[in-house]
Simulated assay, not measured.
Amino acid sequence: MVDTSRPTVRRLDARSLRGLAHPLRMQLLDTLRSSGPATASQLAVRLGESSGATSYHLRQLAVHGFIEDDAERGTGRERWWKATHQGLRFDDALLSDENPDVRGAAELYLYEVATAQTRDLTTWLGNRQDWSEEWNRCWDMSSATLRLSPKRARELAEKMHELIDAYRTPLEDEDESDTAQVRIHTHAFPFSKE
């Protein structure tokens, strides 16, 4: 159940970006958001890392407010972590920040997001035979090349996000046993002036 008392999407600022812009931290946060609460040891096994590394980076994520203790789980020996937000919003102004460390963190963050999205897609392609025929008929990997102005490209991106947001809430009569987490990636960028 989503906690509606907290914002579901967090806007990254210079300070929080520097706390997140590390490949393992980004993987840890994404795993907690998609798979739910876990311990450092569980995450270490899942991501093929040492529990010492996952523990350190989880604490750093907590310092920057991306995750917190899950008080409903664990014992004195086990510390469970959960994500505090469902998503992140990147501010393009971070790419032109006066501080070179912020610009570097912004570039790293974007690169890691692109890498993770490619990993998600290739994982699906490699495992799609494990899914039902119905799921194999409804997935999509498409591209389109349009001639747009920056204004129309922004409008298109905003409309795509509005459409995705309309699907965040399950239908009242939807059978939960027939659902799965579905990853949606959107990309819109200038390709060629020709």
Rank of each mutant, 00 (worst) to 15 (best):
A38S: 08
A38G: 07
T39L: 00
A40M: 13
A40H: 14
S41H: 12
Q42P: 08
Q42R: 06
Q42L: 11
L43G: 07
A44E: 05
A44Y: 06
V45Y: 06
V45H: 07
G48L: 04
G52N: 12
G52C: 05
T54I: 09
Y56M: 13
L58S: 04
R59E: 14
Q60L: 14
Q60D: 11
L61E: 04
G65F: 04
F66P: 03
F66Y: 04
I67Y: 02
D69P: 11
D69N: 11
D70E: 14
G74M: 03
G74F: 04
T75Q: 02
T75N: 04
G76F: 13
R77L: 08
R77G: 05
E78S: 10
R79S: 03
W80K: 01
W80E: 01
W80F: 09
W80A: 02
W81E: 03
K82V: 02
A83Q: 02
T84I: 04
G87R: 00
G87D: 03
F90Y: 09
A93T: 11
L94P: 03
D97W: 00
N99R: 07
N99Y: 03
N99K: 05
V102C: 05
V102D: 06
R103H: 01
R103D: 01
A106M: 02
A106E: 01
E107I: 11
L108F: 06
L110D: 08
E112P: 07
A114V: 10
A114E: 11
A114I: 09
T115M: 09
T115R: 14
Q117S: 08
T118C: 06
T118I: 09
R119W: 12
R119M: 10
D120F: 09
T122I: 14
T123P: 08
L125H: 05
G126E: 14
G126D: 12
R128A: 01
D130K: 15
D130M: 15
D130P: 10
W131F: 15
E133L: 13
E134C: 07
E134K: 08
W135H: 13
N136Q: 15
R137L: 00
C138Q: 13
W139M: 04
